[in-house]
Amino acid sequence: MNAALKRLGDQPWSWSFLGATAVWLMTIAFTGGQGAGEILTSALSFGTFTIIVGLGQMMVITTGPGNVDLSIPATMTLSGVIAMKVMDTDSANMLIGIVAALSASLVVGVANYILIRLLRIPPIIATLSSSFLVLSTAISYGRGIRIKPPLPLADFATVRYAGVPVVAVAVLGLSILLALILKRTIYGRTVLAIGQNERAAWLAGLKVKSVRFATYLLSALFAGICGIVQSGFSGGAALNMGDDFLLASIAVVVIGGTSVAGGKANVPGIWGAALFMYLLVTMLNIFGASPGVRLILTGVMIISVITLAGGEKTTR
C-alpha cells in the first residue's frame, strides 16, 4: 500500500488532482454538501474546452524551450466563426462546416511553421503576429448577426448524462488518443526526444523538422476543434471567445506538470490542472471572494508551481 502511494505521489500530475480534490472538498464543506455534484459537473463542462487547447499547447511546449503557440485563441475564434457561418444553423451542413473550420485551422498551423522555419522568427513572435492576422480575419468574416449552432452540435456540447457532460467524454477520448500517440508512436517519441535534446535527436536519425511541423499543425487543429465545440456550447461564435484561453492554455500545461524546458509531457496533468483551476474559481465564487482575489490566487498558484519545480539545471 505504501509503495503504491509513493508511486502515486511521484507522478507529477497527482498533485494537480490532489489540489482539485482539496478545493472541491473545501467548497462542499462550505456549502454543507449542497450542490457537490453540480459543482463537479460544471467544472467538467467548462474545463473541457481549456483541456482541448491545453493538449495542443502541451505538445508545442514539449518540443523544447522557446516553443509556445500564442495563436491558439485566434485560431479558435476563426474556426468557430467559419463553422457557424458555413453550417448556418442547418444540421445538414455540419460536416462541411467542420471540414471548413478545421482546414482553416490547419492553414494557420502551416503559416506558423513557415514563419518560424523560413523567416526564422522566434515561435513567440511568429505565433503572435499570425494571431493578429488570424483574429482580424475572424473578426471581419464573423461580423454581423451571431449565428446559432445547429441543434446536434449544441446538444453535443451541452448535454449531460448522469451529470457527466458528453463533450467531456469525447475530450477524454481525445486525451487518451494523444497519450497513446505520445507513448507508442514514432512521432510521439520524436517530440519527446526533440524536447530533451534536439541535437541528439537529429544525430539519432529522427526527423526533427517534420515532427516540429506536425506539432504546430496539431496545436492549430486542436484549437480549431475547441472553437467549434465552444461555439456549440455558447450558442454561437463570439468574437472575443478566445480571450481567456491564451493564458489558460499555458497555465494548465505548467500546473499539470509538463516541463517548460521540454521533453516531458503530462496528459493527465492537463485534466487535473483544468479541474483544479475551475474548481478554484467556483470555490472562490461560492466563498464570495471578489474576482480580484480569484485572479491573484491563480497567478500566485502558477508562480508557486514553477518556483517549486525550479528551472533547467545546467548540465555544463
Binding site: N197, R199, A200, L203, A204, G205, S259
Partner: peptide
Amino acid sequence: FIAGDRQSDGVFNLWSIARNVTIR
C-alpha cells in the same frame, strides 16, 4: 552516430536506458 559528448549530443536525460537504446 555515436556521440562523444554524451550530454549535448547523445543522452536523453529524462528517459530510461531502454528508451535511449531503442530510439534509433
